[in-house]
Simulated assay, not measured.
Amino acid sequence: MAVKGSIPKTMKALVAYSKDDYRLELAYPTPECGPDDIIIKTEACGICAGDLKCKHGAAMFWGDDVQPSWVKPPFIPGHEFYGTIVQMGENVEGYELGEKITADQIVPCGKCKFCKDGHYWMCQPHDMYGFMSYTNGGMAEYVRYGKTSVISKVPENMPLEQAALIEPYGCSKHAVDRAEITNEDVVVISGAGTLGLGMITYARMKNPKKLIVLDMQENRLDMAKKFGADLVFNPGKCDIDKEIKAITDGYGCDIYIEATGNPASVVQGLTIIRKLGTFVEFSVFGKETTVDWSIIGDRKELDIRGAHLSPYAYPFVIENMMNGNLKTEGVITTILPIEEWEKGFDLASGREGDLKVVLTFD
C-alpha cells in the first residue's frame, strides 16, 4: 500500500475509557492510514455542550434503565475540529498534503436508506466523530478521515477564530433553515451561546420582521445585539409571555427556536408561540422534558421540527464567514493547550462567562 506523508507512531490524546475515566494520554497510538483514508494533524478542537454532557454521564450517551449506551469507549472526544493533511492513502484523489480540511460530525455509512436518498446526516448506524473508538474525535494530535467522511476544504488564510466555529455554525444554519423564516415572521431564538449566536447572525440574513433573543446572561444578550438581534430579553428579569404578546398584538411569535437544552425553555416556547406557529428544537438535553402536549395539537396546532447536525452547510458557512456575512468576533473566548483540557471543560460550562472554549496542539 502506498501512503503519502508520514506521522509519528504515538500522539497526545484525551481518551474516554468510561464516563468517570477521562485521561490525557501522551503516547496514544496514532491512527493508521488505509488506502481510502486521510490523516490530519489537528489544529484546534472546540468543546461542545454535547462533550460536557457526555463527560457528565448523561443517559443519552451512556445509557440507563430505559435506553442502551450509545458511545463506544475507549474513544477520543471532540467533533468541532479541523486540521492539515499530513498523510493520504493511495486511493485518495482531489486533496494534497498540507491542505486544511474539516468534516461533518456524522460519518455516514453510505448504504442505508437515509444515505441513499440524500439524508446522510440521519444515517441509520449513526457513527459520529468523538464518541466511538473507530471514529475518534479531534481532541488528539491526529485524526483519521475515512472514505465516507463528508469533507470540506478550509481556506489557508482562514483564522482559527473562524475555522474552529465551522461545525457549530453549520448546526446553527441547519436549525434556522428548518424554521423556514420569511420577512413577515417574528422570530424568537432562545439561547445566545455559541450555537445561538450562530443562529442569530444567520437568521439576520433572512431579514425577519423581528428577531428577538432570550438569554439569562446579560453579556450574551449584548453579543446577540451585535450579531443582529432587534430585541433581547432576560427571562429571569421580565415576563417573557407578556413582552412577546405585547409585540405581536397578543398572538405570540411566529417561530421559536430552542437552543438552550433547558427544559424550562421548551415550556416557555410553547407558551409564547402563536397558533399555527413553528417550533424548532435543536438542543441536546441532559434530562427529560415534560410538557402539556395538548398545547401542540388541540390548542395551537403547531409544527414541531427537530434539527440535527449540519447537512450541506459547511461550504456556505465557510464562504460567509470569510466574506463577513456571518459574524464570529468574540465567540471564541478561551484557547488552551490540550494539556489544560480539564480547565477547558470547566470553562466551557459557562460558569465564568465563556462562550466557546477551544483546545489546541503544538
Rank of each mutant, 00 (worst) to 15 (best):
Glu90Arg: 12
Arg351Met: 08
Leu221Cys: 14
Thr289Phe: 07
Phe282Pro: 00
Ala229Met: 14
Ser149Leu: 08
Leu165Thr: 11
Cys45Asn: 12
Tyr17Ala: 07
Ile38Lys: 02
Arg274Asn: 07
Phe227Trp: 10
Leu165Met: 13
Asn320Gly: 02
Thr334Ser: 08
Leu14Cys: 06
Gln268Lys: 10
Gln217Asp: 11
Pro263Ile: 10
Glu258Asp: 07
Gly324Met: 09
Lys226Ile: 07
Asp20Thr: 12
Asp292Pro: 10
Phe114Ile: 00
Asp117Gln: 04
Met216His: 03
Val317Ala: 00
Asp239Tyr: 10
Pro208Met: 01
Gly57Ala: 14
Ile296Glu: 06
Met11Glu: 07
Trp121Asp: 00
Lys225Arg: 14
Glu156Cys: 06
Gly252Gln: 11
Asp21Glu: 14
Gln87Met: 15
Met321Glu: 00
Asp222Ile: 15
Leu336Glu: 05
Ala163Met: 01
Pro155Gly: 08
Lys209Tyr: 15
Ala229Phe: 15
Ala179Met: 09
Lys72Asn: 15
Ala348Tyr: 03
Leu197Gln: 01
Thr290Glu: 09
Leu302Met: 11
Ile151Phe: 09
Ser6Asp: 12
Thr260Glu: 02
Glu218Phe: 08
Lys300Ile: 13
Gly286Thr: 02
Asn91Pro: 03
Leu302Tyr: 08
Pro208Asp: 04
Glu339Thr: 13
Ile335Gly: 01
Met128Lys: 05
Met223Gly: 09
Pro74Trp: 11
Lys116Pro: 01
Gly50Thr: 15
Lys153Glu: 08
Thr328Arg: 00
Tyr256Leu: 10
Ile7Ser: 01
Tyr256Lys: 05
Thr194Pro: 13
Met205Asn: 03
Cys112Asn: 02
Ser152Cys: 15
Asp185Phe: 01
Thr289Ser: 08
Val150Lys: 14
Phe114Met: 06
Ile76Glu: 02
Lys153Ala: 06
Pro73Ala: 13
Arg305Glu: 03
Ile255Phe: 05
Asp21Phe: 08
Asn91Trp: 03
Lys210Trp: 05
Asp21His: 13
Ala103Lys: 02
Ala192His: 06
Lys41Asp: 12
Gly252Glu: 08
Glu32Phe: 11
Asn234His: 13
Thr182Lys: 11
Phe81Ala: 06
His119Thr: 04
Ala2Lys: 14
Leu231Thr: 09
Ala13Asp: 05
Gly228Asp: 07
Glu352Val: 11
Val358Leu: 06
Tyr95Trp: 14
Gly57Pro: 10
Lys53Trp: 09
Glu25Pro: 08
Phe61Trp: 15
Thr360Gln: 02
Trp341Lys: 05
Glu141Asn: 03
Ser265Ile: 04
Val291Lys: 08
Val280Asp: 04
Met205Thr: 14
Lys245Pro: 09
Glu43Pro: 00
Glu80Leu: 05
Met321Tyr: 01
Cys48Ser: 08
Ser152Trp: 11
Gly306Tyr: 04
Thr260Asn: 01
Gly324Ile: 10
Gly353Gln: 05
Thr290His: 11
His119Ser: 07
